[in-house]
Simulated assay, not measured.
Amino acid sequence: MGFAEEHRKWVEDHISRRSGERRGRLERGHGHGERIFLEKVWWPMMGHFNDLHPEYEVVDWRSKPYFVDFVWKPGQVKFAFEVKGYGPHVQNTDRTRYRQELNRETYLQIAGYRVVAIPYDDLDASPELTITLLRPLLMPYLDVKMEEQREFSRLERDILRIAVRLNGCIRPVDLVRELGIDKRTARKGLGALSEKGKFIPIVSEESGRVCRYEYIHSLKDIQLW
């Protein structure tokens, strides 16, 4: 299942479990900047929205509610992600509001959040840079056990590397060309990875047969290589 469908289900799930202003804020506040961050940065890194909460309510030092764009809570650690555009955050003529925003970021850190500012302009111009910066920051908090590291064979790891390099879609013929293996071995490797949840087989409408495989992105795979 692709980003658009998973994103829709994720937002609808959070909306269904909220009421009042918490629900209204999610319906109003989850806009273009937040969605493009998810589509171009979070989804390519993670491949899922587990432990990620949109428009997350935090009570500030004045006992007033404040909504963070995203909070990621994989266990005990808490990350607060804020997508920031140049206009609203740098050229803001409301100096009181600007001071409050800076103070809120400091308070979030006091409350145990690791605050990460995401430049909106980079999401369009260079999302790869944002991914490069986030990977080493988030990776220590991903639970990759030793048995998971042994889950993939050498061939399967090679297939995963090639799939990432080919932007997520791969065909058996790509493996024949890249690895020098026969088609039967290529199909067997892709089939095994599909059973492990790493690929989605895509069926051709014309032939009714599997023609290619779509890689399911995961930041954990970087540690498996």
Rank of each mutant, 00 (worst) to 15 (best):
Q76S: 14
A111G: 12
S194D: 05
L129G: 07
E27K: 01
K40D: 02
R8I: 12
G85W: 03
S63R: 08
P54E: 06
H7D: 06
P119G: 04
K183A: 14
V77R: 06
P65A: 00
E128W: 03
L219E: 07
M1L: 06
P119E: 11
K64Q: 07
Q91K: 15
K220P: 05
D60Y: 00
D174W: 10
A192Y: 01
E82F: 04
D124W: 13
E105P: 10
F79L: 11
P74Y: 11
N50I: 07
L166A: 09
G33M: 02
F49L: 10
E128G: 08
T130I: 11
R171I: 10
R150L: 15
T185G: 09
P54W: 04
R28L: 00
F199A: 02
L102R: 05
L137Q: 12
D94L: 02
H89I: 06
E128D: 13
D60F: 01
C211Q: 15
P136A: 10
L190T: 05
V116G: 01
V164H: 14
D221S: 05
D51W: 12
E205D: 13
H32Q: 11
N92G: 14
D221K: 04
G85P: 07
Q76Y: 12
P44V: 02
Q91R: 15
V71W: 00
D182N: 07
R17G: 04
D174Q: 09
P201D: 06
F81L: 11
K78R: 12
G197F: 00
F152T: 04
S207W: 13
Y107F: 10
F199N: 02
P136S: 09
E82P: 00
K9C: 11
T106A: 09
N167I: 08
L193F: 01
F152Q: 04
I159N: 05
R157Q: 12
Y141V: 04
I15L: 10
S16W: 09
Y98K: 13
M146S: 15
R97Y: 03
F81H: 03
Y86I: 14
H53R: 12
L160N: 03
Q100M: 08
F81I: 07
A111E: 14
E206G: 11
G20C: 04
I36Y: 04
I118F: 10
N103R: 11
W42E: 06
Y141Q: 10
P88F: 01
G33Q: 02
E34G: 01
A4C: 10
G2L: 13
E21C: 05
Y107K: 03
R97V: 04
L102W: 10
Y98N: 08
